[in-house]
């Protein structure tokens, strides 16, 4: 996984609350292989009409926000379905950071597992940032070392679980870490088989 330290990029404002994972990637696109890339399906029904034409008022379609790597939005981003494809769509589109006042728990965890930073800010700071990006050149700096966002003349602190921060800063993958605890997992199972002998279903009807 890529290391995340400091990101200087365009920050696209998307002033909507409750952008759930069904919107981030509608279910009908989830049959595809990740190898094909999910970026084209990101927020598909917000970006395109029923004939596949771009909605001109969707910020993601505006020329000035092309190439943005940071998305700034309102509360409860990524709520709903646990589909990791929502993160794949963001990542494949080019986003590596989302800034919002709150995130769906499962989404945030999925994001970190893919090197995408979910940065939590206060509602006031989110509103200030949304406004500042519209009236400036739209660039921002997200510093994970200091947990600060700089845009226009704003300096905004953001929150991230310290464990997730460490993981992103180092680009760690959980599986390798866990495999280093294999002996402890084995010991747990041996003991557990004695204390909870009913754990494994015995009956396996056809």
């Amino acid at each position: 996984m890529d290391v995340f330290k400091v990101l200087d990029a365009l920050a696209c404002p998307l002033p909507l609350s409750g952008i759930d994972t069904d919107q981030l990637i509608p279910a009908r696109f989830m049959k595809r292989s990740r190898a094909d890339g999910y970026g084209n399906f990101l927020l598909y029904d917000l970006r395109f009409d029923e004939n596949g034409q771009r909605h001109p008022d969707c910020p993601l379609n505006a020329p000035r926000w092309q190439g943005a790597k940071i998305l700034v939005t309102r509360r409860n981003f990524g709520s709903g379905s646990s589909r990791e494809a929502a993160v794949y769509a963001l990542a494949d589109y080019g986003f590596t950071c989302v800034i919002a006042p709150s995130f769906g728990d499962i989404f945030a965890s999925n994001a970190v597992n893919n090197g995408l930073l979910p940065a939590t800010v206060s509602e006031e700071d989110a509103e200030a940032l949304l406004a500042a990006l519209e009236s400036s050149d739209g660039s921002a700096r997200v510093d994970l070392e200091t947990c600060e966002i700089r845009a226009a003349n704003l300096v905004i602190p953001f929150r991230i679980d310290p464990v997730w921060r460490t993981k992103l800063l180092n680009g760690w993958d959980d599986i390798d870490l866990t495999l280093s605890h294999s002996a402890a997992i084995e010991a747990f199972q041996v003991n557990d088989a004695k204390t909870r002998p009913w754990l494994v279903p015995k009956s396996r009807p056809a």
Binding site: A85, V87, I106
Partner: peptide, 18 residues
């Protein structure tokens, strides 16, 4: 609780989650 695909892979391989 619900988990994402990376975590599903983690549980398949290790039967654990952080």
């Amino acid at each position: 609780f619900g988990i994402g695909a990376s975590e599903v892979a983690h549980v398949l391989m290790t039967q654990t989650l952080w």
